[in-house]
């Protein structure tokens, strides 16, 4: 049984306007997503900005109301009415936020920030609480003496570590990592990513990893889903996606990964150009009249792609 199963998830936001603030139409931020994550694995959600990957993550944790579809956690349904329906799962699903600068309250000391989840769920004495926070900080590689500092006294990478300490404080099973490194320097990115993998092993964590960076996704994830305009374009294991991309959009994303080797530069440029021409020519075949992807069809046992129906 997968740890997290999402079936036909839809998140639509109403666009209001006109007289009496009527609902004019809705933006289909997420429009029918289906995914399953096994315990201990990392599932990557990739897509350009506005493709609905962050909305998916936030809907799963309950920050956005779910329009329709079901989310099953350990086989139990989570109801789609915001955070209240999540009460039983709150400890088990946690989130690492994208921006380490706004995700820590600037008026709170590290102790208060990391202890917040503990104060909500565990009745600890001040002494125990402090010890737990010091342990957590040690786990994320920060000195326990930093406990009385304020967030602005830390660098971006350190702040993200504080965010991670907060997320693992309740010993969750699933962590939704919403672009956890996109606000950091490249040198710090690697550090934080490796650290995330390290605590995954140590704490048996399952990740839903949201990113727009295919290189990072390839490094981190076992399974990948590629989103475009709220729908899946392709889904499969990392090998499926990178070795055998089926959809033209996936192919184009993969060609966009930069390569370090300058000797390949000209060849890659040619390749990119070829894929670009193919993309432009085949766009109508791969996307419907509204520019949306078709429903997924199986390519192999693990690999699904939104391929058009073969016409003759």
């Amino acid at each position: 049984m997968p740890l997290l199963e999402v079936q036909d998830l839809k998140v639509h936001f109403p666009v209001r306007g006109g007289i009496f603030n009527r609902k004019l139409r809705s933006i289909k931020a997420v429009d029918g997503i289906r995914l399953a994550i096994e315990q201990g694995r990392t599932y990557g959600l990739v897509g350009e900005s506005g493709s609905g990957k962050t909305t998916t993550g936030r809907a799963i944790i309950g920050l956005h109301p779910i329009t329709s579809g079901t989310v099953l956690f350990e086989g139990q349904p989570i109801f789609g009415d915001g955070l209240r329906g999540h009460a039983g799962f709150r400890k088990d699903i946690q989130m690492i936020f994208q921006d380490p600068y706004s995700s820590l309250n600037p008026k709170k000391r590290v102790l208060d920030i990391v202890a917040e989840p503990l104060r909500n769920f565990e009745k600890l004495s001040a002494r125990e609480e402090k010890r737990r926070v010091e342990q957590l900080l040690e786990q994320v590689g920060l000195s326990p003496e930093t406990i009385h500092k304020y967030p602005h006294q830390f660098s971006g990478g350190q702040r993200q570590r504080i965010g991670i300490a907060r997320a693992i404080a309740l010993k969750p099973k699933l962590i939704i990592a919403d672009e956890p490194v996109s606000a950091l320097d490249v040198s710090v990115q690697a550090q934080v990513l490796n650290f995330l993998q390290e605590i995954q092993e140590r704490l048996q964590l399952t990740y839903l990893f949201i990113s727009h960076d295919l290189g990072i996704i390839r490094h981190m994830c076992d399974h990948i889903g590629i989103m475009y305009k709220g729908r899946y374009v392709e889904q499969g294991t990392t090998a499926d996606i990178f070795e055998n991309p089926q959809h033209i959009y996936t192919k184009r994303l993969i060609t966009a990964i930069p390569d370090m080797d300058p000797s390949k530069r000209e060849r890659l440029r040619q390749f990119r150009l070829a894929v670009k021409t193919e993309y432009e020519q085949a766009y109508d075949r791969y996307f419907d009249a509204d520019g949306l992807a078709y429903p997924l069809r199986p390519v192999s046992a693990t690999h699904l792609a939104a391929l058009p129906e073969e016409r003759g």
Binding site: L63, Q94, M95, F97, N105, E116, P117, N120, R166
Partner: peptide, 8 residues
């Protein structure tokens, strides 16, 4: 939002 996800 972080406070909400940790159950406050």
């Amino acid at each position: 939002q972080a406070s909400r996800t940790v159950g406050s």
